[in-house]
Amino acid sequence: MNSTSDHDPSTPEPADEQPPLTEEDMPRSLEEIDAALVRLMAETEATVNRLRAELAERRQHEAQHAEIERLEHHLAEATVNWSKVKEFFEEVLRELTGRQAADMGEDERPAGRPEGERRNDPGTEER
């Protein structure tokens, strides 16, 4: 809390930060102590957030540099893999036919009975 003791007055304050506590800011009542604590917590939180962002950015750059070191691998794989494209279109067809089957199942369901009710019916239980 005693941040005034090691503050160098010649050092300019960053424009977006509040000035550190001075003698005049020293708490005189319980309310003032609370206010000072709240302010300190906010300052600490802002610093932690700044550090988090900086660390995240540093790690992201580190990961990017590492991936670029593997550029040979990425260049070798920078071509269309037709078996994967085929797999994709098969997946699309499966998704479409699955949805169609689900829609048809919904149409065949008896009117007036919601799906949840039907699922709880012991007669319709999946085996």
């Binding site: 790690r59 991936e67 070191e69």
Partner: peptide
């Protein structure tokens, strides 16, 4: 980790790999 789904490689791992 800021890099979703990616493991960060160390310099040693990278040079060994390349």
């Amino acid at each position: 980790s800021p890099v979703a789904g990616t493991a960060v490689l160390t310099a040693g791992e990278v040079s060994a790999d390349t």
